[in-house]
Structure formats: structure tokens, C-alpha cells
Simulated assay, not measured.
Amino acid sequence: MPAILFLRSSFGYSFLSPKTVFLPCAQVSFLFLIVTWVEPWLRKPLWAVALFAASASFLYVAHLLAAFWREKERKGKHDFYAGTSHLLRIPGFSQNRGNQDFETVLHLWIEPAVVFVAAVFFRGFLSEQWLSLWLLVVVAGMWLKAFINYWYGIRSEKKHTDIIEDAEEKMPGGGAFAEVPLPNASGRKPKRTRPPQSAVETADQAIEQRYAELLRLMPPRPPYDLQQAEQNYRELMKAFHPDPNRPTPENHEKSAELNEAIAHFRRTNDS
């Protein structure tokens, strides 16, 4: 987090949590800077570390206040948004803004490399031992955090894909759950013919059938369970919105259809 505060901006409000930890750490960092400045025997070896910690604490408070203001103005990004890298504002990198694959590479390799170069610079040109050592620890932490996020994204996407595939297998005509015609049994009672349905009833049934298919409801005929519809709705919305900060026209269209479908079943359940 200390290095990320220097490298990015526009964080989501919840990404800056836990505030109960970071705010006391910020206070300690400022006190450490004061003690280092007052005590001459600490000033020479630790002034750079103290200045780095105090600067990171100041940036944390500033980013937290900015995120709070954006939330108040209803202009905030997704709560867990990890910030926009300053490198994406540099010509040559800016055209990749919004490219999720490039930003993954940026967080996983380029940003840690920038901090590593800074550590080498402080060690080689300024002979600063403690800050360079601390920055190397920060590099390892940044890479590990980015790798965990990358792996979590892969697993989350696979989970949503599995949910959709499992639901599709249970739909008519696919998988082990496809409907099997019943054998002809002797002595079966003749089927009773149903009275003809009106055009309005047929249209309503077709609309409800379409909504049931959108929400992957089983069985593919009424009555439908509202609780199952709500659960499928939440899972499908997650699947079609892997990154709420960069929605695509297809995601907008699909989410609108899902919202329309769940609204229909909620109205049906209330009535």
C-alpha cells in the first residue's frame, strides 16, 4: 500500500480499508518523522525511511478524503477499485487505458519494476541503506498482492462460467438432465384436451418462458421459484459484470434484460 499510494490515484473508498489500521499507522509515521528530526543520532540513518513513511501517510489521508468526497457527490468508482496508475497518463501507455490485460501486466510487473529501480537508485547513488531495503520488501509485497488478485480473477471468472454451463446443461436439450420421452404404457388414460388459450395468455406465457431462460430457471416451465430466480440473477449479473468500471455495450444490454426478467418474477410473486 505505501508504494501504491505514490503510483496510483482515484481509489475506491473500500479499497483504502481498514481505516482503523492505516490511520493509526499514519499518526505513528508523522511522530516517527518528528522524532527522527529531533534526535541527531537517528536523523542520518533513518531520515529517508521516516520521510517516505510520512509522505505515504499524507497521501493515504488525501486519497481517503478524495474518495469520501467522490462518494458524497455520487461520482465514486467501484468501492474496491484499486486506483488508476499514473503510468497510464504517460504517452505510449495512455492508449492502453481500459485494457484489462495490459493493466494486469502493469500491476503485476511494471509497477513493481518501477519501485525496484527506485530502490537501486537510492542504494547506488544516494547510499541510502534502510530505505532501499524497505523498498525491496515493498516490491515483494506488491507483486504478491497483484498475483493474488490475478489468480482470484481467474478463479472468479471460471466459477461464473461453471455456473452458467451447469445451468445450461439442465435446460431442455442439453446435458444429462435433458427431458427423456416417457415409454408408451398400456392402460394409460387418454389425454384430456385442454381448452384453447387466448392470444394474450399465449403471449404472456411466451414472455415468461423467455424470462425463465434468461435467468436459467429450472424446471423450464411454471411454477418458478422466486428465491432461485433471485440467486441466479445475482450470479449472472456478476458474470456479465466482471469489471463494473469498464462496462461494455453487450454487458449493458444483458444486464438490462436480466433486470427486466427479475422484475417480472418479483411482480408475479407479489400478485
Rank of each mutant, 00 (worst) to 15 (best):
V49M: 08
P181S: 15
A178T: 14
F121N: 01
G124Q: 11
L42D: 13
H107E: 13
I110F: 11
M218E: 15
Y150A: 10
R267G: 11
P244H: 06
E168V: 12
E257H: 03
E235W: 03
L16I: 05
I148A: 14
P195M: 11
R89E: 15
P249K: 08
T20D: 09
E208F: 01
P91L: 09
R123L: 11
Y60E: 05
L42T: 10
P223K: 02
I148M: 13
H264M: 05
K44H: 08
N259C: 04
F68T: 14
W109L: 15
L106W: 04
T84H: 13
G187I: 02
D204L: 15
G98M: 07
P247C: 08
N259H: 11
N96P: 04
W69H: 10
W109K: 08
R234N: 06
H63W: 04
G98V: 04
V49E: 05
K254V: 12
A229V: 04
R210H: 15
E71T: 06
D204A: 14
A212R: 01
H252V: 11
R123I: 00
E39P: 01
K72G: 11
F177Y: 15
D270S: 10
E208Q: 11
K44D: 13
L136D: 07
I154P: 07
L51H: 02
